[in-house]
Each structure stands twice: as C-alpha cells, then as structure tokens.
Amino acid sequence: MLSTLLKEPLFQITTTLVVYTAVNRLYKKFNFFLFNPLILVTAIMIYILHYTGISYAEYSKGGDMITFLLGPATVALGVPLYKQIPGIRANLKPIVVGVLTGSISALISTLFIARALGAGRETLVSIAAKSVTMPIALGITEILGGNDKLIVLAVSVTGIFGGAVGAEIMKLAGVKSRIAIGIGIGTASHAGGTSRAIQLGETEGSMSGAAIVLTGIVTALIAPFAVRWLV
C-alpha cells in the first residue's frame, strides 16, 4: 500500500516536505546539530525508501521537481546581494581581498589535500566548490563535470563544521577584528558558518553574509583554472 503510493511524485514530494517541516521545527526548538534537517530528514527519508523498497531512481520522479527549484533559488540570491550593497561598499577593500583570498585558498587546499590523500579525479572536481553556498556550488560542479550528490555532501559537511567550530577556530587563531572574523567564516563555510557568525555579533554576521554570494561568483570564475592546474 505505502510502497504503491510512494511511487507517485505527489506522495514522494508530500512525504519529503512533511518530514522536512516536522524536523525543521524540532531543530528550531532544540538547536541540536543531529536534528539538522540535512542530516535527520535525509536519514528518515532513506529509511522510508529502504523500508518501502522504492529505488532512488523511482523517488527522483518527485525529487527532481524539488531539485528544480534550486535554479530559481540561485537567481534569488541576487536579492540579498543587492541589499548588502551598503555594507559591502562600507568595507569594500577587506571584503574583496578576503573573498579573493578565501576562494583561492579554498580551491587550492581542498584539491591539494584530497589529492595527496589519494582521491581520484571525479571526486576532486566534485568537492572543489565546497566553500560555496549550495545552489551556486551545484552550478559550478556541473560545469567542472563533477557529481551533484557529492558536492551536496561536501557543502553540507563544510557548512555544519564551520557553524560548529568557526568561532572557536577564530579564537584559537587569535583573530580579534570583527570584520576579519565575519569574512573568514563566511568565505570558508557559507550559510552554515554565517548562522553562527550572526550569534557572535552584528558586524560578524553581516560581513559573513556579504561574503557568501561573492565567494560563489569568484569561485565560479577561478575554479575551472584551479582544476586544470591541480587535478
């Protein structure tokens, strides 16, 4: 019964959205990292699909309709970028220098370390854009010829990690400037880190937020060259 229903896109989409909504409320209430929807919803849905014997290919009929909206969501990032113009203009030099430094060091360090540890070509191009916000990272990865599921994992891990330890790393590194802390966290770990930067203070939050989309644009421009040199 359940497995017949879940072969229909309608039920696939509804189940995904209902589970997401429930988990998201739980996460908002308890703010415990294992309740992060990216982790818990994925685990629950994998269990449901496994239990009902629905293959991923079958689930994709509905899943792809949800994924389609990532395109418009990418374009929508133009709105926060526009709203950040005053903040960016006020700190133009540190933001530009920070975003360039962050984008270049992210590509080099990810590719270099992963390659040294024995990762293959397909894996390397699939994780290169890990410091970029998810929808833009997917576009970059598509152009690089990488795997869309792997970049989603890479971006999630980076965001969750940056959000969890970003503030502590800055403290350990002895960084005092609020602007530097915000830009560092934002370029390295996009929205996941920014959610934490916001808690540190207004300057940290707005700088981190301003870095997100700019890091995506800069990384898109230099990633093809970095891959040519380092992969």
Partner: peptide, 15 residues
C-alpha cells in the same frame, strides 16, 4: 532553501 537539497542528499546512498 534547505529542503531543496534533500532529494540530492538522499541520492548520496547511490554513490
């Protein structure tokens, strides 16, 4: 936006 990543995340089991 986070809900939009869920289907790809589920697809992780395939790779």
């Amino acid at each position: 936006m986070m809900v939009l990543f869920i289907p790809l995340n589920i697809g992780l089991v395939t790779i």
